[in-house]
Simulated scan of single mutants.
Amino acid sequence: MLVFPNAKINIGLNIVEKRPDGFHNIESCFYPVGWKDALEITTITAFSVEFDGIAIPGDQSDNICVRAYKLIAEEYPLPPVKIHLLKAIPIGAGLGGGSADAAFAIKALNDLFELEISFEKQLSYARRLGSDCAFFILNQPAYCFGKGDQFERIDIGLAGKWIVLVNPGIHISTIEAYAGVVPKPSGSDLREVLRLPVSEWNGIVKNDFEATLFEKYPLLEEIKAELYKQGAAYASMSGSGSTIFGIFDQEKDLVEVFERYKVWQGALQ
């Protein structure tokens, strides 16, 4: 079975408070975008894993897709499989690529072996694998809160708008990103703010990681400024990573403008 795990962006990201378990409560809008990996799962006589594309750090046997398989196999009789992942979504980029891979692995295993795992149970598996994995089970625009694993549907009317994502290749770990953040309650309801026209979001819809990470990595702020210069209605850093995105009212080709970096651009759905 071949599936294509897609990335997401964060539209607004408020770090509200630190939790007793060491995680942070956040408020954000997660929105799926078309930058995709390719994940193939097939039956085989002996379990195996193969990765291509962008190098994935760490032990292959502990990859999040493997952990998804093992988690389901604790409750369902799964045969050995071959997991082949072609990695295209940048890592440490704030795009949720690893979380998407895990969630799509859960869904693919469920479909491939006709396990009939309920939607709620798929969410439960996903939450055990990572804070934002659950989002990719439904994979539709959502207002996310808690650790990023609780969500509700949101309609912010971006269908048909054009997005450009620029990743300069800087890997920012979650630990590094949170080290510079002082949690604080947000002064407004993000869901209400996102009802405003996109052109009014600048200065209101904020990512709390930008303040410290832009100081540490000035290139990120330069990319954001260039997106506005190119006519973006709104631009921001996504998540806690190094990808900057710009939302445009009309199609825009900025590959040559950002030729030194990885760029994905396309229409929002």
Rank of each mutant, 00 (worst) to 15 (best):
I170A: 08
I106Y: 10
E192D: 12
D208Q: 10
I170Y: 09
D249K: 15
A55M: 08
P32R: 09
D132N: 13
E222N: 10
E251I: 09
F47G: 03
L158F: 11
I154P: 05
D189P: 08
E259P: 02
R67E: 03
N14V: 03
C133M: 03
V164A: 13
E40S: 14
S188N: 11
G160N: 04
E40Y: 11
D132W: 12
Y69M: 08
I223P: 15
D59N: 15
A108C: 13
W35R: 08
M237W: 03
Q230I: 00
K8R: 12
S99E: 06
V257D: 07
E251P: 14
A233S: 14
I11S: 14
A142M: 01
E50S: 15
P185C: 07
S236L: 10
F248W: 06
P57G: 02
T174E: 07
N10L: 14
G266R: 12
K70P: 05
S242I: 02
L268E: 03
L39F: 06
F23G: 02
Q140Y: 11
I72F: 11
I244D: 07
L196K: 07
G58V: 00
I117N: 09
G146I: 04
A177D: 00
A179N: 15
R19L: 12
A232T: 03
K36P: 01
H84Q: 13
G187S: 02
K184F: 03
K206N: 07
S199P: 01
N6W: 00
V205M: 06
F113I: 03
L129W: 08
E74H: 15
S186E: 10
Q230L: 07
L112Y: 08
L158V: 00
A232R: 06
S240Q: 05
Y228R: 00
I89P: 07
Y261V: 05
N10V: 10
A211K: 15
D132I: 12
F248L: 09
